[in-house]
Design a protein around this nucleic acid. Structure first.
Lengths: 173, 173
DNA sequence: GGCTCAATCTTGACGTTGACAAGATTGGAG
DNA sequence: CTCCAATCTTGTCAACGTCAAGATTGAGCC
């Protein structure tokens, strides 16, 4: 077999996203990831310690990308960007908010999560309005991904925009 | 061993809630439930077919209880009731919105879910406002349960009320 | 009371998984 | 050229979900 794959860590993280989108987090298996990457069954554990370690890195990457996606937008478009991220990276989004799946005290993860919080709350003057916007964005994204939200023929981003406009004036342009 | 436990199905569902609250859904094990109930390792499968069958019944019970909890309240208090349910039955709430864990086409489950939808949307005139309220309630509950929401020293129901008041007038009394 | 039978639960087995230990391979630093 | 740490493999273990087969029980029926 080929030793020193060279890029295994990145390949495994990409395979994780694919595997979760295909069969859900519940069915995620380190051995399946190893098969997808063409390495032995114990190779993933070397890079991430254990399964929770893999998902820790996976969630951290998600928070990093979310922080980038949120940067620089106004209130309403930031909410839309939040939903857009959740729908385009559903596997990351799901793992990120299930701390029972990973090592929630990991420094890299905490730093990445702080970055997204910064992007969400950084310049916000009205804390409660920001929390309401975050709740709408998160709730809508979660419900949409779980299939529970009605109106599945419409564009979810348009739907999200309509929901944000239900908030008090000043944010509803 | 004692055959004909008599009440095993109910006991297993209660043990499921306890086990999930202790160690998360990811760590849920039929064999552990069997040990908690004092029966053999294969007894749970007899009542529910398989693990997904158990979680189907578990989620259905959750939707039933949610429908009851939502009945008869005005808009704002219905949202508060939604959050109260999520926080008082966190295990049910989590499973209910993770259809990859159960048999999403189960008739009993679909009926129970329809009942909650009815309670949520039944008399609602403004569909978008209702969806915004649902999104806030669901998003806040999810974020609170995942530990991501700030202000963990405050009463979550008071916090939820404050968020609902961020919606357009007519719902913010 | 005794018989029958379906429902309930047990026992035993199989393939798969996450984790661990020990060994093989490799590339780079000195 | 040698060493060494990083990378990956191989082998193993207990635990898990699932299935098949058997044991036990209570309720209906004569």
């Amino acid at each position: 077999m080929a030793y020193h794959h060279g890029d295994l860590r990145r390949v495994l993280l990409e395979a994780t996203a694919a595997a979760i989108q295909e069969h859900g987090v519940a069915a995620l298996s380190l051995r399946d990831l190893a098969r997808r990457a063409g390495v032995s069954h114990a190779a993933p554990a070397h890079h991430f310690g254990d399964k929770a370690g893999l998902l820790t890195a996976f969630a951290a990457a998600g928070f990093e990308e979310l922080a980038t996606a949120l940067a620089g937008d106004d209130f309403l478009e930031m909410g839309v960007a939040y939903v857009r991220f959740a729908l385009s990276r559903p596997a990351h989004f799901e793992v990120m908010f299930r701390p029972d799946l990973y090592h929630a005290d990991d420094p890299a993860l905490l730093a990445a999560r702080a970055k997204s919080s910064e992007a969400l709350y950084g310049e916000d003057t009205d804390k409660t309005a920001g929390q309401a916007g975050w709740s709408i964005a998160h709730g809508f994204a979660t419900l949409w991904l779980s299939g529970a939200f009605p109106g599945r023929d419409q564009d979810p981003l348009d739907l999200a925009r309509a929901l944000f406009r239900q908030l008090n004036p000043g944010y509803s342009q």
